[in-house]
Design a protein around this nucleic acid. Structure first.
Length: 537
DNA sequence: AGTGCCGGGAT
DNA sequence: ATCCCGGCACT
């Protein structure tokens, strides 16, 4: 399957990749790009300074990793809660909330940036969380001096104060937001999903972060793009479409937990996206389902709805009242999203579901699940469709092998294009305006095997040179199979006559039809002394 | 002997 | 993957 080009392009330069502001955020300011890119926006680094605010008592992190700094973030845009992944200031990819928000990251544990341990951790004078609007208060002169030195050394610290539109929400939830932010950053930095499975779907999802730019994206996101077929989307909306669920979750686990509520949760999912203020509600394919996995340590519960997950966290982990409908959002940081491919799950449960043309792909090949959504085969109207070469190839009939087979058919390379019988049941109805002819090796229901509808003679003529044989054969079934009267038996049934070698077919073969003098007219298989594919028994 | 084609080699 | 052929089974 050919990778589809992305529908968007992003700036490719490293500086632009790192520093270009997210849509809607244009505030300029210095950033701490280690690559020396020009000052872009203060939102870039997110690390405002080596200052420490006394966050509310941090909730126990869902998982812990020793030595990791714990951050508190004042999130201006809630979408960060859902989209952010672990970031560090070292990698220059600290993400900022999109939109008008401001971001403040204050470190509670060893202050560091770009690998340096920064002195001057200042406790707030008044013991309350210091907001951006608060002037920096350094208690001791040496602290102030150290801070000033740092300000001089790194442009990073010039962004200690970022003017932000006033309309930003500063409700009573601000303190709670800090707790949430701390939690999410902690989870982002210690999440087993991120730590253990960087190349997995979540790794791709991370790379697909809308604020991350093209280079990393092109590779990691292309896979999901390939899966997505032809459905169009704009970059921010396709934040994550990993086709592979998080490894810790078996597909059956996911399936059992969400299949039951699949339908009802779709709306809720969308509503959740809206509530969380995603820049653009993610357009998900029908085959992708969002699951929510609890990141609480030793929990890992997977629920199909965010509200359910919030309730779960609220009641189980936070010890709050379950009936307390009001959510402060803190729960948001204790779970993460899992994008689960519905098809893979349904395929995994294929024994429970009726076989449909789109589910003919075995679950072992989830990457092919999307194929039915795309024009399966670039059939020309006159091209005849035949079975793939082998039963196993039937799984890829809609992918790579099909065009090749068709090509071979047209060039009379029927040998490569042949396949098992009984495939007809798996074939989709041809697209409109397309004509598909099942040429041969059909199920016993269609006993007469037809020679290929089209084949080229060496002169390029589409009609055979010996119409007496082939011409008559084409419009109507070959008399041979009818005479044989194959019983309705699966062709895979071993024939009793011989051991491994199948009995010689009674049908005329290319040799007989065309003769040795017209060997060039033979099908490729006959020329290669293989089983004739033009006149199949 | 003629034919069909399996198995395997060469490229 | 494509092409070719030795050799066997069958007619």
């Amino acid at each position: 399957m050919e990778p589809k080009p992305r529908l968007f392009k992003r700036a490719a330069s490293p500086g632009a990749r790192i520093c270009s502001p997210p849509p809607g955020l244009t505030s300029a300011g210095p950033c701490c790009c280690p690559d020396g890119s020009p000052p872009a926006a203060a939102w870039h680094c997110g690390l405002i300074g080596p200052f420490k605010a006394p966050p509310p008592p941090p909730p126990p992190p869902p998982s812990s990793a020793a030595g990791n700094a714990v951050y508190t973030v004042l999130v201006g845009d809630a979408s960060l809660r859902r989209r952010s992944r672990r970031r560090s200031c070292e990698d220059g990819e600290a993400k900022s909330p999109p939109g008008q928000g401001r971001l403040q990251v204050v470190q509670k544990s060893p202050t560091h940036c770009n690998g340096k341990v920064l002195p001057g951790e200042a406790e707030p004078a008044n013991g309350r969380p210091r907001h951006l609007s608060d002037p920096l208060v350094l208690k001791r002169p040496e602290e102030e001096a150290a801070a000033l030195r740092l300000l001089d050394q790194t442009p990073l610290h010039h962004s200690a104060y970022i003017p932000v539109p006033r309309q930003r929400k500063l409700s009573g939830k601000a303190g709670i937001d800090e707790v949430m932010a701390a939690a999410v950053l902690t989870s982002l930095s210690t999440s087993p999903v991120v730590l253990n499975n960087p190349p997995s779907g979540f790794g791709a999802e991370t790379s697909c972060d809308p604020w991350k730019e093209a280079p990393a994206m092109s590779s990691s996101c292309s896979s999901s793009s390939n899966n997505s077929g032809d459905w169009s989307w704009d970059p921010p909306s396709d934040l994550s479409t990993p086709s592979t669920p998080s490894p810790p979750l078996s597909s059956t686990d996911i399936a059992t937990s969400f299949l039951a509520s699949l339908q009802s949760d779709i709306e809720e999912t969308e509503a959740t996206h809206f509530l969380f203020g995603d820049p653009i509600p993610r357009k998900r394919k029908n085959s992708t389902k969002v699951m929510f996995k609890c990141l609480w340590k030793n929990c890992g519960k997977v629920l199909s709805s965010s509200s359910g997950m919030q309730k779960h966290i609220r009641t189980i982990h936070l010890g709050r009242k379950a009936d307390l409908d009001q959510s402060d959002g803190e729960e948001d940081f204790y779970y993460t999203e899992l994008d689960v491919n519905v098809d893979s799950l349904t395929d995994g449960l294929s024994s429970l579901t009726p076989v449909s043309p789109t589910s003919s792909v075995p679950p072992a090949f989830p990457m092919l699940e999307e194929a039915p959504q795309t024009p399966a085969i670039p059939l020309k109207p006159e091209v005849s469709l035949v079975s793939p070469p082998s039963p196993s190839a039937a799984t890829t009939i809609l992918s790579q092998s099909a065009p090749t087979s068709l090509c071979h058919i047209q060039t009379d390379h029927a040998y490569q294009a042949t396949g098992p019988t009984g495939l007809l049941a798996d074939l989709k109805p041809p697209p409109q305006g397309m004509e598909i002819s099942i040429s041969w090796q059909q199920p016993a229901v269609f006993p007469p095997p037809l020679p290929p509808v089209l084949f080229k003679s060496p002169s390029g003529c589409l009609t055979p040179i010996r119409p007496a044989d082939v011409g008559e054969r084409r419009p109507q079934p070959s008399p041979m199979p009818i005479a044989k009267g194959h019983p309705v038996v699966p062709p895979s049934m071993p024939k009793p006559t011989t051991g491994t070698r199948k009995p010689r077919g009674e049908a005329k073969k290319c040799r007989k039809v065309y003769g040795m003098e017209n060997r060039s007219m033979w099908c490729t298989a006959c020329r290669w002394k293989k089983a004739c594919q033009r006149f199949v028994d």
